[in-house]
Design a protein around this nucleic acid. Structure first.
Lengths: 217, 217
DNA sequence: ACGCAACATGACCGAGCGGTCCGGTTAGGT
DNA sequence: ACCTAACCGGACCGCTCGGTCATGTTGCGT
């Protein structure tokens, strides 16, 4: 996980023909747009049309719609992970965490597919997305730990909590986003206040915690 | 809106035959179960099978799947409204609001369809559900106002905020609910702490507020 | 310039959906 | 006991979806 960057995710193995590269790029661009706009239920025909290619060509590049979806989403997850790592260098620990969460909610708000994919529900089959989720949680965890040490974050919050709360804030504001695209700020602020609250004792415990993460398996 | 109760929502006008009443009751029961379990995307065939009736019979009682859905959901919304009104008689204002929110999240957690329907997204077509949402917001508003007067709720929260936050807490905890059905308590507590937080100044304003509610129209 | 493997395409397939319809069944007034 | 209108059921329709395949096209090594 470091020095890649090949314009698009690695095709199987051998070099591709020039036209195929062009087609693939158009496909990925179109898929990213359509998924962001309509969510995971967007049809392959819709994507093909937007890319200006035939429906069959979609399946030439990705064996399954789900594979295409995972390729798109996991790239976007990587972007958010990068934002998180960059925030780790931010001076103020609380600000770093808050800005990471802001970036996350904002991303969700502009990408229906991402919000759906990152609900982290138990039924996320694709390993690429699963791996991305774990990276996200790890990034959030380190931001959280620093905010507990150097900032004012409650002691009993972990990385999973942070990611779940990002998702929750998005869904809280979702009904308003069409009318006011930044409506989520109101609820992120409220949530963050709750994350820093002190007076009311410890939260109910996170019983299940990482039993969902198959790291231990 | 008061003295009804006819076992099932009023069929068009005339009295029904005894067998039809039985069938309708079975249909409503099955639909409530299936929708709660599988959400709004559950198929009519599935519902008919669970009710032990033919698929055509479903459409004899409800012209559209959406009408059936709305009938089920609006009944369940009424239940939550009742809970809220009952909490208004609770001594402590903060406790009343918190218990209303607990009831709401718990209901969502046990009813996928309800959680979907109450996302209050702009595209809720059915007037029955729309009306239910407005009742819910009104109930939440009165609980909130009392908690602001007699309790410790932030001054800049309204009924819509409360309903959105209930929904948000549910979605926050949703990925954990399969493993721990009461995982939402952790996040409701955190959210409620945020709702009572004082130190950090006013929230970003709720610009759109009730422009979504066609009360003024 | 040639030939072939890589590529693109859209007709096509089967499954599942909401909704319709008509022939058979049954409740219930008389 | 009978007649009729209300009721029930499931074959059927039209549509959309993800995915396949035979056919035609094109980049590119030689």
């Amino acid at each position: 996980m470091s020095t890649e960057e090949e314009a698009v995710a690695a095709p199987p193995a051998r070099r591709m023909r020039a036209d195929a590269v062009r087609t693939r790029k158009a496909l990925l661009k179109a898929a990213a747009e359509v998924f962001a706009e309509h969510g995971a239920e967007a049809s392959t025909a819709q994507i093909a049309a937007r890319a200006g290619i035939g429906k069959g060509t979609v399946f030439r590049h990705f064996p399954t719609k789900e594979d295409l979806f995972a390729a798109i989403i996991s790239e976007e997850i990587d972007g958010l992970v990068t934002v998180g790592r960059r925030q780790a260098e931010q001076a103020d620990a609380d600000t770093a965490l808050l800005q990471f969460m802001s970036a996350g909610v904002d991303l969700y708000a502009n990408n229906r597919a991402l919000a759906e994919a990152l609900r982290m529900v138990s039924d996320v089959r694709h390993p690429e997305i699963q791996a991305g989720q774990e990276q996200l949680i790890a990034t959030a965890e380190s931001l959280a730990r620093r905010a507990q040490r150097d900032g004012s974050l409650r002691a009993d919050l972990n990385g999973q909590d942070v990611m779940l709360l990002i998702c929750g804030v998005y869904y809280t504001a979702a009904p308003l986003l069409a009318a006011d695209p930044s409506a989520w700020r109101r609820y992120l602020r409220l949530t963050f206040d709750g994350m820093c609250a002190t007076g009311t004792g410890p939260l109910p415990p996170a019983l299940v915690h990482n039993s969902l993460l198959p790291t231990v398996r």
